[in-house]
Design a protein around this nucleic acid. Structure first.
Length: 293
DNA sequence: ACTGTACCCTGTAGGC
DNA sequence: TGCCTACAGGGTACAG
């Protein structure tokens, strides 16, 4: 479900109730999600204060006073919902069953500040684990991750050199978390559309041999950054079941230019093309063959 | 190296 | 109404 903008939106929603608060009680309601929970999961959390909450790629990272980090991944359908102790939503925008089926509430955090945070995940592709904060960069899950697309390190030079020898499609190149961390299916489609680049093009055809990017790479970098920034600003997108931590919906889905629009007219003024759906690496790609070359 | 396929699991939308 | 199929934002393993 969640790509970078959604995870960042969740982070911003959780930060004020998690940071500076302690885990008073942790209810772990099953053995595992995608993976088993780590040994002594509850014991290693209870009593610990969260000192900061960060996002890396599509992971949420809660730094604990124990020196450990609670790393959380939402998979496809994971979401966090915040309530007060009485079980009422913090906000009154809780319509449409935004709380999800309680059968899929797998973890409940009761915090020292009174907040109750439920992790709900119907498909259970998400997971939680605990890792040492000091060596997080070396951790299996994190050591291979590529650059954050909203950081200074994401430059045309970086992308140019990463693409240089890649014969895979541009779409699968951009989906690769070892290259860019946090991009997913929707935002890759949207970025390629905005940059006017075909998802089928070989990644290497984008790059220049000199190491100095030509025109296409900077355009793609700008497209990725602006698509992500706009989505974060809009509070992420909502497809099917994504909800913000207060149960409300994101708004970015109203802004999709190509994603999910197969058969509809290309929105670029001069273009008479039709958005097409193809499958690449087992995932849907939406693009306009007329203006994406 | 890269692609396609299957898989993890449940919910939902659409066709009949 | 139900039953069936296809598909879903993520990621990994494996065969070719």
């Amino acid at each position: 479900m969640p790509e970078l903008p959604e995870v960042e939106t969740v982070r911003r929603g959780l930060e004020p109730v998690l940071v500076g608060s302690r885990f008073q009680e942790v209810e772990q309601r099953r053995e595992g999600l995608r993976f088993p929970f780590p040994k002594q999961f509850v014991r290693r959390l209870v009593g610990m204060e969260v000192t900061r909450l960060e996002r890396r790629a599509k992971y949420l990272l809660a730094y604990l006073t124990s020196g450990e980090v609670l790393a959380m991944h939402l998979g496809m359908s994971g979401r966090f919902l915040i309530e007060d102790r009485q079980g009422a939503s913090k906000s009154d925008r809780f319509a449409n069953g935004g709380g999800g089926d309680p059968r899929h509430d797998h973890v409940i955090f009761r915090m020292s500040n009174g907040a109750v945070i439920r992790y709900n995940d119907a498909r259970r592709f998400g997971f939680m684990t605990l890792a040492s904060g000091a060596t997080l960069d070396q951790h299996k899950l994190f050591r291979g991750l590529g650059v954050e697309p909203l950081s200074e390190a994401f430059t045309p030079e970086y992308l140019n050199s990463a693409a240089r020898n890649k014969s895979q499609s541009l779409k699968s190149f951009l989906m690769d978390q070892k290259i860019i961390a946090g991009l997913g299916n929707i935002y890759v489609c949207e970025s390629l559309y905005q940059a006017g680049l075909s998802p089928r093009r070989k990644a290497s055809t984008l790059a220049t041999a000199s190491g100095r990017p030509g025109k296409r790479v900077p355009k793609l970098v700008s497209a990725i950054v602006s698509v992500l920034e706009n989505a974060v600003r809009a509070g992420g997108s909502t497809l099917r079941d994504h909800r913000q931590t207060d149960g409300s919906l994101g708004y970015f889905q109203h802004c999709f230019a190509v994603y999910g629009r197969a058969g509809l007219a290309c929105q670029k003024k001069a273009c008479q093309g039709t958005v097409q759906r193809i499958v690449q690496n087992g995932r849907s790609t939406f693009f306009c063959p007329r203006c994406q070359k």
